[in-house]
Nucleic acid binder design. Structure first.
Lengths: 225, 225
DNA sequence: GGCGCTTTACTTGTATGGAAGTATGGTTTA
DNA sequence: TAAACCATACTTCCATACAAGTAAAGCGCC
């Protein structure tokens, strides 16, 4: 709110946290992987304390599990947590789509269309990371368009569990279907059809996890519950 | 999942965190209050390190704000965050009520009625803390009854912002209204009326914040946004 | 009187040493 | 052979010292 002018150098602990957080969400650190304070500390040439504090923050996010005197491990993907995230996002984003269809703010809708165009490009280029990042922005814009940008802050926490999964399962077919569904949502909103917008949003979020059973079967050691 | 048999003594840092967390939610540590690592550490006779780690976890919860080299403060209540929490809970618990009305699991519904009875008792006794705790359990039971207990884990984070507010504003009138609305929700579920159950749940959650403007006017220094 | 520098007393951030607990592999013992 | 014991090498946890930055009070100067 106030100090957006000056940018102070982020602390060592924050940098380590950001680094680990990004690697976990991208699947570079797979579920079950072991982390070591001393190992990471010596690797990047700092003391154990900042690394330890980064672990604590990862633990609060539910992305790491600290077992006292035993070790720290990347959390496995909780199936029930993923399903809960889906249920919550279906309910909330369904409401947001309905709201947006009755408001139809021109600027936000244009930004959403721009993201869909970006998704076409990222899909053709095979840029999975870029695609998922644009996907995130699209859903965030839905909250903005509904006049509840702050809602996205809370949904983002839920997305992290789902994103780990999507980095594993995102294939060409899914990307094409995702883009088509995004367009469906936006078209319904543009038409001012609240009912259709809610249904499209709910359908989209529900089908996002159709591959979950296959992923569990293929990589059982990455999941729990 | 596995080690529920043996209970290991919680670490010093966890105990400090639990203590602070509880005090913040109850309003004993008001928004804007200043925290000091050294002060708390010497007060309870430990070193700064565990206290510091408790601060970090409070920061992840959004309940404290750590300003580097300046100090740590209890977060003010973000109005937009509270409104977001309400929107999310309306959408999600509306769906949960609808689901429960179609399932009608007898055991869970009995437990919900028992909580309502407890709320009557706590109300008569003027036990505000006990009332709010029973209120929490009632809403948690709604998730359990719908077969999605894990959803409550996520909703609990959102509740913390709202609970700080409720500890400030909870008066006799609100408690009576709350109990009546809980009963409405449960009755609609028992009747198997999904539509009425969803409406009752949404109405209840929406009206939970009717006193927000008054609270902001009365204690402006506790709020932000 | 009022502006500006300096000192001083704070704050959190990082490094390091040791304490306590855990797991593993080798050794001893029956 | 097999089971119990023990040494050892880990892990996270806590305490302590110091570093780096902030803020405010005090003092000198104009």
């Amino acid at each position: 709110m106030e100090s957006s002018i000056i940018t102070l150098a982020p602390s060592t602990a924050s940098q380590v946290y950001d680094w680990l957080h990004r690697r976990v969400l991208r699947g570079e650190l797979p579920p079950g992987a072991r982390l070591s304070e001393t190992e990471i500390a010596t690797e990047i040439g700092i003391s154990r304390q900042p690394v330890r504090e980064a672990f604590i923050r990862l633990g609060s996010d539910g992305l790491a599990e600290i077992r006292p005197q035993r070790g720290t491990y990347i959390s496995k993907i909780s199936i029930s947590a993923v399903l809960s995230a889906r249920l919550i996002r279906e309910a909330v984003e369904g409401d947001l789509a309905r709201l947006t269809a009755s408001l139809r703010p021109p600027q936000a809708l244009g930004a959403m269309q721009a993201e869909i165009d970006l998704q076409h490009a990222a899909d053709s280029a095979g840029d999975v990371n870029g695609f998922i990042e644009s996907d995130d922005r699209f859903h965030r814009l839905l909250a903005v368009a509904a006049g509840h940008e702050a809602v996205w802050t809370d949904l983002e926490r839920l997305k992290s569990q789902m994103n780990r999964l999507r980095h594993m399962s995102m294939r060409a077919f899914d990307r094409a279907r995702t883009i088509a569904q995004h367009q469906q949502i936006l078209d319904a909103i543009r038409a001012g059809d609240s009912e259709a917008a809610e249904t499209a949003a709910r359908t989209h979020l529900h089908q996002m996890l159709t591959e979950l059973p296959q992923m569990v079967a293929q990589y059982p050691e990455f999941f729990t519950d």
